[in-house]
Each structure stands twice: as C-alpha cells, then as structure tokens.
Design a protein around this nucleic acid. Structure first.
Lengths: 193, 193
DNA sequence: CTTCGTACAGACAGATCTGTCTGACCGCAG
DNA sequence: CTGCGGTCAGACAGATCTGTCTGTACGAAG
C-alpha cells in the first residue's frame, strides 16, 4: 500500500522539487519541464494530479504555510506555562532560525503575490497564510491585554514582516534580533508581563 | 529642441507605461509587446535605448526609487528645525500616504527581487534603493543618538518594511498608522526628543 | 533639395512554455 | 493468465515572448 521506503511517491517528489525550485529561483522563471525533469516525474502524472501549473503553485504555498505555522506554534506551545512575553519571544527565536537558513530568499507568499497578483487560487493561499500569525499572537496576549490585544498582535506581526523583508533584501539575517528587541520594548511599553 | 508640449517623448512614454504595467501586474507577466502597444512606441525605438528588457526593468526601478526618496526626504527636510522624533514621524506620514494610494501593490523592489533573484542589474537597482532610508534615519538621529543611532535607524526601517508588507498582503493601509505608533514608542524608549 | 537622425509599423526567427495525447511498462487483484 | 490503475517517456500543437531586421515617414540642418 504505502511506499516501500525507496524513493518517495511521484506527487511527493514533485512537490519537494517544486518547493525547492519555485522558492529559490521564482515561480515564473521555472518551467514545468524543469520541475518534471528534476523530480523524475512524467508530465501526464503531473496533470493527473493538478489541473494547471497554478494549482501546483497553490499547493506549494499551502505546504510552506503549514510547515512554518507548525514550527512556530510548537515553539510557543512548548512554553505554555510561561509569561506572554516569553512566549512571544520564543516565536521570534524561531523567526531568527528561519531567516538565518542558508537558502532564505524572503517570504514565499509575498514573492508569489508579486508574480501572480490577480490569480484567485494563489491569492487565496496567501490570504490563508496571513491569518495564523496574528491569531497566534492574539491568543497568547488574550489573557493579559484586553481591548488592545489585537492591535498589539498586529504590531508584532509587522515586526515579523519587517524582519523578513530586511533579511531578504539587505541579506541581513540579524534583522530577526533587531525585531525581537523592538518586540520586547513594545511589550514592556504595554506592560505585558 | 525639447518636446513642443504635445505627447511626451518616446522614452518617457515607454517608462511611464512600463512603470504602470510592471507594478500593477508583475514584470514577467507583462510582455514587451504590451508595453510597446500601450505606449505607442516602436520596438526598434525600445531596443535603440535599452539593450534588453531587463535593462528597462532596472531603469523602471531606479525611477521608482528616486521618486520615493525625493518625496520622503523632502518631508523630513521641511521639518529641519524640529525634533528628531517629529522628523521621523513626518516620514511615517508620507508612508501612510504611499500605502493608502489606490493602486498600491507592495514594494516594487521586493516584487522585482521575487521575479529576478539572480539578475545582476536588477539586484543592483534594488540594493541601491535599500540604502537611502537607513541613511536618512541615521542622519536625523545622529545629533541625539550616538552609538545606538544606526541600530535604531535599522529598527525604524524594519517598521517601514513591515508596514509595506502588511498593507500589501493584508490589504490594510492602516498598517502605516500602526507602524508610526510603534516608532513613537521605540523613540520614546530610547529617550529621543 | 538633399541628407541625416529619429521614430513608427510590423514581419520574422528562434526559443520557450503549458497542456494534451500516444504508447509502453509494471505490480497487483481477481 | 488477464485486466487495470498508476506511472514513465516523449512527441506534439498552439500560444507567447524576446530581439532583429526591413522599409517608410518626417522634421531639422546644411
């Protein structure tokens, strides 16, 4: 039934290769033929599972979103008993790891939005991703910050977005540390414990 | 000698159309033929002034950068006598205007970087743009913040980048106001007058 | 009037990209 | 053994894109 631990199933190979190439070189810059050749998958297999290239792109984005959300959420949940500030800063520690990874090339969702500003399925994948981080921050802050909680969460998301942009465009991975410092100052200014 | 006030010269028409289309729809998504048709310029004229499409893209980016830098710098210089905090906040007021413009679709440099991650001329145009804002903030902060000035400037640039990303991906132009609030808190925390 | 520089219009070649289709192969269920 | 679902390999059509080239038009300079 399942893969007998040889090389992964075709769809998995396809998605792994698409992730690598689309993220590293840009989506429109990478043709379907290239993805197929490097993943050793037949064209007919691709189109048996995805209606168009854009469907594959949307799937690529959803997988990226899931992976990051899981990783960040886990780090925050691991500190369930600690203070809201400590939990927020735990998220920023993960951001630091993400932004320091060798192949980091910016936010895959911002990048995809630049390439497909008007495609419904891709924009939906992006909108989907944009929801989880403010929700996570709001959840962490809910016990201590009442009304101002969502505004504070939005400000923290901005710090994340700014760190991502800077790490990419300025090739400055230390921007995650700068963002964490600002986050700490912001939380202190709002008397979050 | 100069244009007798009819329709602008071909290169100017070309650049205006390229700016509009590249920014609104993405660079790779817009073919040269489309730019030529909408600007009513002949293909031979384009290639007499630009060696390749990418050269035109680089020019488009340089013009965008110049326009924004001029506008922001002017607002800051207009408050030459005022406090550093007031001058920084004046920049954020301009950001608010920029992010609230109807056709706003994110940072043209981040967008271009997503589409041409490996093209030397385009990456050079992006790197060029990335320098002026931290330099402006550093200049404003130099009189009051000594050593910490450049770190503070970097943090403020992050706030700008975060506001741009949020305004684009979340369609939330009010993110400029959020960023300005954080900037004010940050400057206060560093006792900048 | 002629010449020169600039621009226009559009054909053209060559490359490339997406999506369809054909045919062969292979493991497994019946 | 036979049939079937899933996969591979690659040809193919049709569209599209960049960059070159040809020929024409027009105003200014000489």
């Amino acid at each position: 039934m399942e893969a007998s631990e040889g090389s992964p199933q075709p769809v998995e190979r396809l998605l792994a290769t698409a992730d690598r190439l689309f993220y590293a070189e840009g989506i429109r810059a990478v043709g379907i033929d290239r993805v197929l050749a490097e993943s050793r998958v037949a064209k007919s297999t691709l189109y048996a599972h995805f209606r168009t290239k854009e469907d594959l792109v949307a799937k690529y984005l959803h997988r990226r979103s899931d992976a990051t959300r899981t990783r960040v959420t886990q780090a925050v949940e691991d500190r369930a008993g600690q203070s809201p500030t400590a939990r927020i800063l735990a998220a920023f520690e993960v951001f630091d790891e993400l932004l320091s990874e060798p192949g980091f090339r910016g936010c895959p969702f911002a990048n995809a939005s630049a390439e497909y500003p008007h495609h419904a399925g891709i924009q939906a994948a992006i909108a989907d991703d944009r929801a989880w981080l403010p929700a996570l921050f709001s959840r962490v802050l809910a016990p201590v910050a009442g009304q101002a909680g969502s505004g504070l969460a939005a400000a923290l998301v901005q710090l994340y977005d700014g760190a991502v942009a800077g790490a990419h465009l300025d090739r400055a991975p230390e921007s995650a540390v700068t963002a964490a410092r600002t986050a700490r100052a912001l939380l202190a200014a709002h008397q979050v414990p």
